[in-house]
Amino acid sequence: MAGELEFERPVMELKKKIAELKEFTKTADVDLSSEIEKLEARLEKLEADIYENMKPWDRVQIARHPARPTTLDYISHLFEDFFECHGDRAFGDDEAIVGGIAKFKGIPVTVIGHQRGKDTKENIRRNFGMPHPEGYRKALRLMKQADKFRRPIICFIDTKGAYPGKAAEERGQSEAIAKNLFEMASLRVPVICIVIGEGGSGGALALGVGNHIHMLENSTYSVISPEGAAAILWKDASQAKKAAESMRITAPDLKELGVVDEIIEEVKGGAHKDVKVQAEEIREVLTHSLKDLMDLSEDQLIDHRYNKFKSIGQYSFLKEFIGVK
């Protein structure tokens, strides 16, 4: 099967074998149904074993899977009447971020998300989902518009990070990201963020200052890519697997660290196995998340966001006072 991942190979092989046997019984005269049954029982156990004990690196592989559903995939399944808006009104239109207006269960909303491509051609057009400043400024323009018309905002996070390029620096990548964090703080509408693939550093966070942050089970969210961390820590990018484990970047890790509100269950083997079913899982979480937040007043929403981020972090105090003298 195309796009199979290293760790799930035993499952794929067994599946193939069962299919072969089934094919064989159709033509041959022997009855193998008991063997097939046995193998199917084994498959079930194997699947449970493999998919329920995924290592962080396995999840990284799923989060980066070329066939993993993107923002536009989920938009087409979850929303009605999506109208895409382009451009930051200052420099250009960055296709690494998509955004627009739509309805969710009849409620007007603004939807924004990072957008990867699925093949090389589309990836070049969308810069592999790595935005330039104008992408973040487009996102901010749409958020302010949502604030004006009192529409809840839903953000899909899926990027390796903000693009590290010369032009991006010249046009103020830092300022664009910082401004988004700053302005998102005072939006008077519910903001819900869902990490659907990779949540890479500041480039992800620039769409991530939400009242609620949810993560798909096999998505990741981190301050630096496992490769980057390995390069800095051990001067060796090939130790990414080890870095993925020590950096705590998976959904359960982030839940434990108090960053993420809910983990959205994924289809067995990853969202790419069935987009439709996955979209339904997201719809369910989005529905009750939105319901909860729409009960809050404008001021309460702003306070809620303030308190959410204020509470993230771990520190303690020395008993003895040692200050700058």
Binding site: S222, R248, L254, V259, F309, I312
Partner: peptide
């Protein structure tokens, strides 16, 4: 930049400080 040894918690400090600045600014 962010301190790697505290992982995503370091990243979230960007949001924490920016949210506080916005309130102060407003």
């Amino acid at each position: 930049g962010a301190r790697m040894q505290e992982g995503v918690l370091s990243l979230m400090q960007m949001a924490k400080t920016s949210v506080a600045l916005k309130r102060f600014s407003d």
